[in-house]
């Protein structure tokens, strides 16, 4: 196990370098990092040259990348155009997005798995067909539609929630945005659990459990569910990473000042430092989450042992 973790950590290095280099090149070479500084007008050539040498942008790209990475490892993600430290932006944005992700994941686990178990055990019955149809609808509707409709109905028309989330973004205000963010994944979790349960329900070991005279509840939770959840856990784990970075639409709709919002603003204003910094952190989150999922897999299924 220990050796496996070390090997995986080593494997992360090239992935990390590759991913960050790609985003660095995209922003710094394909885009113009100076253009955003001058607002809507084009920059005066003299100012531009001066700025370029000030930020080291006249140096070769590989040198720029190395300098940047060197700074990142000392905890310096640079400064945004408005003079704010990128790390400062992160320290306000990440806690908000983490809270939002927690809400979304809880929805996926509680609602998604419950619905999946119920439908998997009652395959072909009315409840199964209804839920299946609902998941199809949810998957087919883009998140921004779900988000805007819920915001309009719950927030504006009926006044049950605040249409916009406050800057502090406490858990209580994140319930509806969390549901919106989770909706598509929730539908997938439901379907995945349903298929897995239905498949394992007829398994020999379930028959053995029944033959042992175990109560139905114990057969389902201890024998059926433990085996059926292995693929679901993998999906949910991988989704944590996707939700953290992919909340751009939801955060925009509900005016949540999290990672997605900052990234969106950064891209819009060609705020190079913000974009590269946030993406670098997201790459790390992805890598860490994937490693945890793989380790969790071995805990859930003793047949998998990493050497």
């Amino acid at each position: 196990m220990g050796r496996y973790v070390i090997r995986r950590l080593l494997q992360m290095i090239p992935v990390f370098i590759g991913a960050t280099l790609l985003i660095f090149l995209m922003v710094n070479v394909m885009g113009d990092p100076i253009a955003g500084l001058c607002g809507d007008r084009a920059c005066d050539p003299a100012t531009e040259a001066q700025l370029k040498s000030e930020f080291g942008l006249d140096k070769p790209v590989w040198q720029q990348y190395l300098t940047y990475m060197g700074n990142v490892f000392t905890g310096d993600f640079g400064t945004a155009f408005n003079g704010q430290k990128v790390t400062e932006l992160m320290s306000t944005a990440f806690p908000v997005t983490i809270r939002l992700t927690i809400v979304a994941i809880l929805f996926e686990i509680v609602v998604g798995i419950s619905l999946g178990v119920i439908t998997g055990l009652r395959r072909g019955r009315p409840i199964d067909t209804t839920v299946l149809l609902l998941t199809l609808v949810v998957i087919s509707i883009p998140t921004f539609v779900t988000g805007l409709v819920l915001q309009l109905l719950l927030g504006v028309e009926w006044g049950w929630i605040n249409p916009a989330v406050s800057t502090e973004a406490p858990f209580s205000e994140l319930i509806v945005p969390g549901l919106v963010l989770a909706s598509v994944s929730l539908a997938y979790v439901t379907r995945l659990t349903r298929t897995s349960i239905a498949e394992n329900r007829r398994a020999d070991y379930v028959r053995t459990a029944i033959a042992k005279g175990l109560p139905r509840r114990r057969v389902i939770t201890r024998h059926l569910l433990r085996n059926s959840l292995i693929p679901v856990v993998t999906f949910i784990g991988a989704d944590v990473g996707a939700l953290m970075g992919g909340a751009i639409v939801t955060e925009r709709i509900f005016n949540i000042h999290g990672v997605g919002y900052q990234l969106y603003q950064g891209i819009l204003r060609q705020n190079t430092q913000t974009v590269v910094g946030f993406v670098t952190i997201l790459v790390l989150v992805f890598l860490a989450v994937n490693l945890i999922v793989d380790l969790l897999y071995a805990v859930l299924d003793p047949r998998i042992r990493y050497a």
Partner: peptide, 19 residues
């Protein structure tokens, strides 16, 4: 079931819970 009468199945690998 299990207490007064019990059953032994053919394929023990698939009949035992793998996890």
């Amino acid at each position: 079931r299990g207490a007064e009468m019990a059953m032994i199945f053919q394929d023990a690998l698939s009949s035992l819970n793998p996890v």
